[in-house]
Design a protein around this nucleic acid. Structure first.
Lengths: 228, 228
DNA sequence: CATCGGTTTAGACTGATGGTCTAAAGCGTC
DNA sequence: GACGCTTTAGACCATCAGTCTAAACCGATG
């Protein structure tokens, strides 16, 4: 944990450390960030750094938490969701999420830092390996989705890249969850069925009357076609 | 890329290297795996290792791809999905996924290795920092889900832990996708709406007649209640 | 003012990492 | 047997996160 001593530092000194850490973590991700560089940039000695923080993770945690706290302060607390029916629930949640993301987009450094925790954390180098691995599964998924759209099993009101990203996110979460379950072979089919019903729910076309979602604006279909 | 020279090695020597790498990566995750240990375990010299592989990521990529190839060989290719209506599409996909996960569960080392790429990769140490970070958001999400269930906005036929895992996976994917988009403030509301409609689709109760999902077996509700 | 004691800083040091490099050994071919 | 390419060995490098000791600082007390 952050040592309480840190709070006793002068505001400017606190900020120079936090800023140095933010810069480093945001640009290089957690894994490739160098504590030594942070120390240099902050203009303190190694001894001082370890006097204030338990280590790299501790520093990251502190800075991230600080950033998040600022974010939530800007956005305010989550409104009470228990005020009406399901539609009201989703409307409130949607609005809050929008405000949150707007605030996050407004602080690119924090965004980069948070994004980098699990992902860009694998620095520029290790990312290549993952890309290679994903490259083999990505066309696969894309094709499945395309087929799904053809047979009317998959919605087409959302940019395909987003559909793929979310589907992969779901898949990853499910895989990890499944792998962390006791391998009860008998329970597996039920679990898989539940998982697929969730994916289906997310990805299947919706009855427009039951879900009042405004149509997706075609303008922002400029979704990094270069990324492949 | 794996140097072609590697293929010229004797099968036993190839296997000793692959096995050593698999052991190391599976037990310690990518990040905490030590190439030096793999080299020792495989009984080769550093020079040889770097003569056959470009580096750590390369080795990981090769071993992972090898494992995946074996998996898909066992399971067979994805059947043609374009054979009927949406229901057929989902039925085929669901069945294939089930077979895939069964095969994966049957090879725990490969499972551990893949799981460890992004997640357990952060060794025992770094995990704590992430837990701390998630700890603050997890109860938050859990509460939102609970409220959602109360107002009928969230399904309750799936273990809450799974619901949370998948919802967080979706959220993470969306956040990263959103952050990687050009910040077109005007397009944001439309995007968020699309995202929320996907989450809603995944997480909302389904009309049982439209989605023939077998009810979730209450037996396997033993989903690590200790993890909190 | 002097001394004492806790707090803070400095930075040398440790053991480890992934990766590089050079020199030698192996070995097939002429 | 000698040449020349392939393969191996392992010393070496920069860098990393983290430890540790000794000095500097500084307020309180005599």
């Amino acid at each position: 944990m952050v040592r309480p001593r840190f709070a006793k530092l002068s505001a400017t000194q606190q900020q120079s450390i936090v800023q140095a850490a933010l810069d480093e973590f945001a640009t290089r991700g957690f894994h490739d960030a160098s504590l030594n560089r942070v120390i240099d940039a902050a203009g303190i000695s190694k001894g001082s750094m370890y006097y204030y923080f338990d280590g790299k993770e501790d520093l990251y945690g502190y800075v991230a938490q600080l950033g998040l706290a600022g974010l939530f302060e800007k956005v305010g607390p989550l409104p009470d969701l228990d005020v009406g029916d399901a539609d009201a629930f989703w409307a409130i949640l949607s609005d809050y999420y929008l405000r949150l993301m707007r605030a996050l987009v407004a602080s690119p450094q924090l965004a980069a830092m948070l994004r980098g925790w699990a992902n860009a954390a694998k620095g520029p180098s290790a990312q290549k390996a993952q890309e290679d691995l994903e490259q083999s599964s990505l066309p696969w998924i894309a094709e499945v989705l395309a087929t799904g759209q053809r047979v009317g099993a998959v919605r087409d009101d959302v940019p395909p890249a987003l559909l793929i990203a979310v589907a992969m996110g779901m898949g990853e979460a499910m895989d990890i969850w499944l792998m962390s379950q006791p391998d009860d072979d008998a329970a597996l089919p039920g679990l898989i069925a539940a998982l697929m019903s969730m994916i289906r729910g997310a990805v299947a076309p919706h009855d427009p009357s039951s879900i009042a979602s405004q149509p997706f604006p075609a303008s922002s279909r400029t979704t990094e076609p270069d990324r492949r």
